[in-house]
Design a binder for these strands. Structure first.
Lengths: 164, 164
DNA sequence: GCTACGCATTAATGTAGATTAAGAAATGAA
DNA sequence: TTCATTTCTTAATCTACATTAATGCGTAGC
């Protein structure tokens, strides 16, 4: 039993192989439930390289995990002719859900960083995002979080410093 | 307004720096809301190397994202003396939440794999987990999902094959 | 049936970061 | 404060994977 009556503007749509459903920067507040076919989401980094974030086949949900009315981070397109249920992200969400969605957004960013950014770039992103954590834990734990060795972090930090 | 009255056996606890709250394999069905202090979760790979999955400071929630009554994947310990609200994962969850939690579990696994497994190991895990996807997309997209180049995947697959 | 384009494979070479090791600095316990 | 332990830095060497490039293959379109 649900308490919120969701005014869900659900629409069933058919898309062809190759069709793009979302581009980075779009204020697309939709997500897609795959009834048949196959979708993919991916980013393109500064070097022009594609990084696939996820595939979604039958019964999976495909969404760019950013809030509604936040510019999209990723491309979404169809790898096969597909049939989808399209819904709005703006459906009322409970506060409990909101926390989970925020956690998914953090993890999405983390995966993208791990796949497309160098050690020093991940470090700089971390420092910007969690400045308070940086001051409270030893360097080697930050290295461990970033997926590099403390030695590499030390070396790479010095290099970056001397460049400025 | 919530419809489910959650019988939440919430308990406020204090832990000292260094104290371990959870070990891999534990059937620990608890999660922790950090009131003060700092927690960390991490795995140890086959080579004995630590990989920090997340830090949780004030107002963050620390949880090993596996279902209740599923053996834990990670260590959780305190990096500072901390005060925590401890709750049970077994609180009633809505089906909507359940989907989100499953997605978080998938992402958690993905991050751990990216940090601690080699390309070929990630490939083998992917094939085992999504055998149907493997057959439906070109190799180069699987490589992109895994975070390696198609060339590397091709080479490494051949090596593995000749070893068997 | 061709033709062309995307895909897979292979090999040569390059590089970010791992590993190892040793000394310096910081931190914590007594 | 002192001693011991952990953490950080630096440097030399090593390795997994990236890059580049060339070749052959499969398949969709003509």
């Amino acid at each position: 039993m649900r308490i919120f009556v969701l005014r869900t503007f659900m629409k069933t749509i058919k898309v062809n192989r190759g069709q793009v459903l979302q581009r980075p920067g779009d204020l697309n507040s939709k997500f897609y439930e795959v009834k048949s076919g196959l979708l993919r989401s991916y980013t393109i980094d500064d070097k022009g390289k594609e990084h696939i974030f996820m595939f979604a086949s039958e019964d999976w949900i495909m969404a760019d995990n950013v809030g509604p009315n936040t510019p999209a981070e990723m491309f979404i397109d169809a790898l096969e002719d597909s049939e989808l249920n399209q819904r709005e992200k703006t459906e009322k969400v409970e506060p409990e859900n909101e926390k989970l969605i925020r956690r998914i957004a953090v993890l999405q960013k983390r995966v993208i960083m791990l796949m497309s950014a160098s050690g020093i770039e991940r470090y700089e992103h971390f420092v910007k995002t969690y400045p308070n954590i940086v001051q409270r834990v030893p360097q080697k734990m930050i290295a461990s979080y970033l997926g590099i060795t403390p030695e590499a972090l030390s070396t790479v930090k010095k290099q970056r410093l001397s460049e400025k």
